[in-house]
Design a binder for these strands. Sequence first.
DNA 1: TAATGCACTTACTTAAAAGTAAGGGGATGA
DNA 2: TCATCCCCTTACTTTTAAGTAAGTGCATTA
Lengths: 110, 110
Amino acid sequence: MIHQRECPVETLIHVLGGKWKPMILWHLIESNKRFNELEKLIPDVSQKMLAQHLRDLEREGIVDRTIHPTIPPKVEYSLSEYGKTLIPVAEVMCAWGENHNKRKYKESAS
Amino acid sequence: MIHQRECPVETLIHVLGGKWKPMILWHLIESNKRFNELEKLIPDVSQKMLAQHLRDLEREGIVDRTIHPTIPPKVEYSLSEYGKTLIPVAEVMCAWGENHNKRKYKESAS
DNA sequence: TAATGCACTTACTTAAAAGTAAGGGGATGA
DNA sequence: TCATCCCCTTACTTTTAAGTAAGTGCATTA
């Protein structure tokens, strides 16, 4: 059965659209991070939302979760090869968003 | 006072992120549209949400609302010059989203 | 033995987005 | 005059996303 496919722009918005997802990815672009490193880097995120967003991103194939079987075990999150394909998209989005923020700033200052 | 500016990727997600906004813009890229034309083109949108999203897009400067003082008056929505700067961004987003949909389809078919 | 760190999960509550249904004010048309 | 079209608005309900707080299991350290 071929089910109705959503609009591709909405697909992307869905993938990036959680409150903390852009922030999480921003940090993972820089380097791999552990759960509690992300907690510290994003002070306002709750453990629940961090775990949920990481699971979402993992399910979409954007983020890899690696359990290092050391003692104690450590869990590392990283941007997958596929996830890296988001970087140029994010750059274009970012450039537009920056300009839009400036524009709004100017108009509110006038 | 310089208030905290949000992450530019979030800014863009906020601008495009309403349930019907990508669809509305898609139709306005093609040509100017009147309120009830949009209603017909997007059968599942409610009048309330259509009006609200159009107001949001207008407030952000993406969409122009023109009242033609004919009898009866007609109201036309169009993509503003500024709104057109979203087109290349949407294309990049769209390309990624299409690929992602294909990827998910393949994985669910396997 | 007690306290702390890590990587979470669960249950419950609140807030934000969207849906539903009705109405309104000004036309035109039959 | 009554119905209909256009472009919405308002009030209320439902759904979805996010926040809060507590707890779990295993391990190390003091």
